[in-house]
Design a protein around this nucleic acid. Structure first.
Lengths: 334, 334
DNA sequence: ATCCAAAATGTAAAGCTTTACATTTGCCCA
DNA sequence: TGGGCAAATGTAAAGCTTTACATTTTGGAT
């Protein structure tokens, strides 16, 4: 015996399939007595809607897909929480696709969208392929998309972001305010759109203070723990060590802290550290990390709301949310 | 103009819809010339399969749902990686549902399964509701399920796990081997099935060494940073401080480390610390954390393979994978 | 040229639901 | 009792694909 269908329910309840369908979706238009009979038949048969048939008929799936570049990156989790709450409030199921920054996986999820399995998508990272610019997307018939944070502005989708350049500026200005003059920056990967913005903010802050931006004070990085450790090695090896470092994310700062501790370099006495993101563990770093907090839950929620608007036929503008400099124990006077 | 259908493609290519379908799924049975014509028509129209129709007809969705209790918990990410690689090798798309340990969300994903949107599910946590025992599941007509780690054994699904009791035993024995005699355990939440297993291993290790398991050495915890900090407060306040603590997970150990550092208590000189899980940040704790590594990617992969077997009609047995004690810098002699 | 088997293609049904429209039922009032 | 209107229910089509089976085409052998 295979899955019961709406027809089985109808037969048992002694009504037509239309009435069963109405019982399930618009219960108030069917007579109370009938409704009871139908619902009891539903229980009796253990009936469940066939989502494929429903979705085929309704031409929508009541699902939203969130494409995450790396689910292991703690930065994304709170964003997902924000998305989920808005999505479920709107009756949509949120599903997460982890692209692992791989082209193949990304393509798999794009196909998912193209096949109509989701009514829209939220992008948490710059895609590998260029399928997200508006003309291409329309040509492909892709459902609407909203990007969060890591995406280029040109002809791309509606976006939720913070002022990364301004935030970097604020972080570095904080260091300057503490008397630091030789301040290094550990950047993100070149491929990431945020990298350039944060570098720009770093440089501008230096300039505002009459300082020179020196190439040898700009360290490469890739957002990973290891590149934080590498940054420490480079820091150690320099003749004129910077008295402070601004990291493009918290994870790299944590890698640096671990290496510094192991080498007996004290933070913030010997060197001040500022991170970016305020991830979960930032408060429990040793020492607790000064960083830039992004309103992650709110970013997710805002993106989901934008997506719902687009699905509803509107054409909302991109949104920029406020960041916050969270001063903890990893920064101090020179 | 709405989405092109297979019929549009057929018309343009001058063939029947059956041929188009065959071109897409069994290209070798159609003549080369025809195939070319069809594929060009596909490109021309920008045709994409309608997943709903396909799934309706085929009675499967080529999707596997992974239910995660808390996507922000870094413990899960590598498991997901393992699942993904096996899933995509089998032509399935992996989707993640974050239940947030909330009953409502969990129900939403169960409904997702019941509606036939996924061909099977992987459970990364003990469900809130009791829908996963085999009789209930069969009665509901749920697709097959495999659980990873955090699930009770009774009448539940096929499971992939490690020997938690043995691992806890190994961790505590390591401390005993270093000369520790007063060893505390910071447990997980009571609701979690793993908690009891790890407590049991802790107690057994003490007994094996002729030590007494004392209630005042068993601290409560909830796997969060904060309960690690609370454990430190309790540790501080005790007359006879333990010389070592075994934590039921790394995150709590990290909370403890942060508080200890702030209070000037040195690890491992003043107190030795062992965690559990070997999460990403464990190697960059200060000091680097001695912990139990679970083969997370392999656990995910194994679970996915089991699920595929069940889908394929077999009835595989549960699997237990080896753990490993990773000794770093947070443990030392008394 | 004819015939046959194999290859290629076509036809049509099935899969399950939603929904516009048609029909029936129930109720109130005259 | 009958008429009329609203409420309740039913009928049937549409949504798009896969696939068993039927039919046509191809190509080779005689």
């Amino acid at each position: 015996m295979s899955r019961p269908t709406i027809e089985d329910v109808a037969r048992i309840a002694g009504v037509s399939i239309a009435t069963v369908s109405r019982c399930l979706h618009m219960p108030d238009v069917v007579a109370v007595k009938t409704r009871e009979r139908v619902l009891s038949a539903v229980r009796q048969t253990g009936y469940n809607l066939n989502a494929a048939a429903q979705s085929l008929r309704q031409r929508r799936s009541n699902t939203v897909l969130v494409m995450v570049p790396d689910i292991g990156n703690t930065f994304f989790s709170k964003i997902l929480g924000g998305i989920e709450s808005e999505a479920s409030a709107a009756g949509l199921t949120m599903l997460i696709g982890d692209t692992g920054r791989s082209r193949a996986r990304e393509d798999a999820y794009v196909r998912y969208l193209l096949n109509g399995r989701a009514d829209g998508a939220l992008l948490l990272a710059d895609p590998q392929a260029a399928w997200f610019d508006i003309p291409t997307r329309n040509a492909m018939g892709l459902p609407p998309i909203v990007a969060i944070s890591e995406i280029g502005p040109d002809s791309g989708p509606v976006t939720v972001s913070i002022d990364n350049e301004g935030a970097a500026h604020a972080a570095v200005s904080h260091l300057i305010g503490l008397g630091h003059r030789r301040i290094a920056h550990v950047a993100g990967p070149d491929s990431n759109i945020l990298t350039a913005q944060r570098v720009a903010g770093y440089r501008r802050a230096l300039h505002s203070a009459g300082l020179q931006a020196e190439p040898w004070l700009e360290f490469p990085g890739d957002f990973g723990l290891t590149s934080g450790r590498a940054a420490f090695a480079r820091f150690q090896g320099q003749d004129q060590r910077p008295s402070a470092l601004f990291f493009a994310n918290d994870e790299m700062a944590m890698g640096f802290l671990a290496s510094a501790y192991a080498a007996g370099v004290r933070v913030p006495r010997d060197v001040s550290i500022v991170g970016f993101d305020d991830i979960h563990f930032a408060q429990s770093c040793i020492p607790a990390l000064t960083t830039i907090r992004q309103p992650r839950a709110e970013m997710g929620a805002a993106a989901m709301r934008l997506l719902l608007e687009i699905i509803g036929g509107k054409a909302p503008a991109s949104v920029q949310l406020p960041y916050e400099l969270v001063i903890r124990d990893s920064t101090g006077p020179v």
